[in-house]
Amino acid sequence: MKDGTEKLIGALSEAVVPVERLPSPAMRAAQWLGFAVLFVGALVVLRGYRADIGARLSDVEFAIPWAASLFVAVTAAVAAFYMTVPGTPRWIVALPLAPLAVWLATLGAGCVRELSEQGLAVLGVSLDCIEFISLTSVPLAAVLVWMLRRAAPLAPSGTFAMGALAAAAAGSAGLELYHHIDTSTEALVWHVGTVGVVTLIGLSSGRRALAVASVND
């Protein structure tokens, strides 16, 4: 059997050609985030900023969860790219946990207060949110998959779920800039809920989405 390995080593070293080294995961994450800012920004400009955006951003009840959703997008994208480099320490998958906890906790606290004051009447149906987050997630995730496939996603499901979380959180952060939703309850149900569904779809389809990458054929 070791003869076979020796033959294989001979064949591989004879077949070696120069390869272009992959840029660092941080650099690739920055490239994708740059694309995400341009893409989501263009959609927000096309649909029009909400008129009271200045006032909303100075309101901590809006600004903290919004900034947290932005950090979820950034940290999840960084984690997804690091996960495609073999040997990356496992703690990298925990990067988005802190901003995710802040996002859920701040919206959750507001939601509890609103429900205790106004009851279920506070929750309207907002199909716009689902449409915007889903529509932004698909092209953002498609570009991400294309970039991740150039590397080595050894754990395709987890990697794609992380990427889907980044894409959906970026969509949600963009949505907040134009959409008139003022209650934490609606933001929690429609925004975080859609982000969760998109992430689960990523988890279940990751193997297929990244299957043609060189290590997972």
Binding site: V16, R21, A152, S214, V215
Partner: peptide, 15 residues
């Protein structure tokens, strides 16, 4: 042998 083939296929990912 399978690992060596993978190493060959993804050698561009090594920093």
């Amino acid at each position: 042998q399978e690992t060596l083939i993978s190493v060959h296929a993804i050698r561009h990912t090594y920093d």
